[in-house]
Design a protein around this nucleic acid. Sequence first.
DNA 1: TCTATAGTTCACCATATGGTGAAGTATTGG
DNA 2: CCAATACTTCACCATATGGTGAACTATAGA
Lengths: 118, 118
Amino acid sequence: MVNYRQDRLDRTFSALVDPTRRAMLARLERGDGLTVSELAQPFEIKLPAVMKHLDVLDEAGLIVRSKSGRTVTVTLSPEPMREAMDWLSRYERFWAPRLDRLAAYAEAEEAKARRRGK
Amino acid sequence: MVNYRQDRLDRTFSALVDPTRRAMLARLERGDGLTVSELAQPFEIKLPAVMKHLDVLDEAGLIVRSKSGRTVTVTLSPEPMREAMDWLSRYERFWAPRLDRLAAYAEAEEAKARRRGK
DNA sequence: TCTATAGTTCACCATATGGTGAAGTATTGG
DNA sequence: CCAATACTTCACCATATGGTGAACTATAGA
């Protein structure tokens, strides 16, 4: 298929399809700042495959790699997930049938936050 | 099976990668219950391609098809998205470092732990 | 009954994805 | 300097994905 312009949401979702990549992200969530080999260690796959996964995550903007000497530290940068959650949240009403109550709760929380001075 | 949940997440995310499929779901969200040709109408692609997209959405459990006469009505069934949102919500604290969000995160984690029976 | 409509299936194609082994590039440490 | 370490790049492979045209099934309507 000819992909003229793969937008951010496309890249985010396709980065999240692969369970190896999701596991890498989950690992970084539990403890951020791992080297490439630390990240690779739990998986059966060889380093070139790990590299490709890191490239996908990097291009999706979900991780940042910083080189120091011969080691590369990978850190989480999950902001693109926010857009994905926003997209999904449109469908929330289908599984959360008491939307009015939830909306009221959210509003009350916001009011509380404002009272606290944001 | 142990990997059942993971397989379902795989399928959900990979169904959501394609912008055509996301547009179809969005269309159903605005007005549920469209026939195959109504769903296909806004897109440039031919019916066989539409069929494949519907198969993917169906296998991901995101739509339901019901035949009546020679027309097939497609309805939304977005429950699998809930799991995807749950997965993403772990990362929410990275872009919303507000206290109430952190509390919600901690609560969700606790609930998850309880569900696992830990 | 005959034909148009609605959808489905099939064979095929180009490109993307996720993996490999082998070889290369920097750094670090002895 | 030399060897081990930590990636990185390359060529290649199998399978998946998203698309097509052609042909098919089944129902609706004149």
